[in-house]
Simulated assay, not measured.
Amino acid sequence: MRELSTAIDHLAIEDPSEIPRAQLAEQLIELHWQMARLQAQIARRTAVRVF
């Protein structure tokens, strides 16, 4: 989880207005892909039942 937090921190310090449009588009696609993967893992863990 620390690596995920660090990656988000790195994104937070970037200024998107300074990123070239083509690179920004690639980043947006990748971020959406990674967000979907993260949401899937959240759903998996939410579905776990403790007996």
Rank of each mutant, 00 (worst) to 15 (best):
M1F: 05
L4H: 03
L4A: 10
S5D: 15
T6V: 13
T6L: 14
T6C: 09
A7W: 03
I8W: 06
H10V: 12
H10W: 08
L11E: 13
L11M: 11
A12C: 13
I13T: 13
I13R: 05
I13P: 02
I13E: 15
D15P: 00
P16Y: 02
S17V: 05
E18H: 06
I19V: 10
P20F: 00
A22E: 15
A22I: 15
A22G: 06
Q23H: 09
L24I: 01
A25M: 12
E26W: 05
Q27P: 01
Q27T: 01
Q27L: 06
L28A: 09
L28I: 07
I29S: 05
E30F: 00
E30L: 01
L31P: 00
L31F: 08
H32F: 10
H32C: 09
W33E: 14
W33P: 00
W33D: 13
Q34Y: 04
M35A: 06
M35P: 01
M35T: 11
M35S: 12
A36G: 06
A36R: 10
A36V: 05
R37T: 05
L38E: 10
L38N: 05
L38W: 05
A40F: 08
A40D: 14
Q41H: 14
I42V: 14
A43I: 07
A43W: 07
R44M: 02
R45F: 03
R45Y: 10
R45Q: 13
A47W: 03
A47G: 03
V48S: 01
V50T: 14
F51E: 15
F51L: 06
F51S: 10
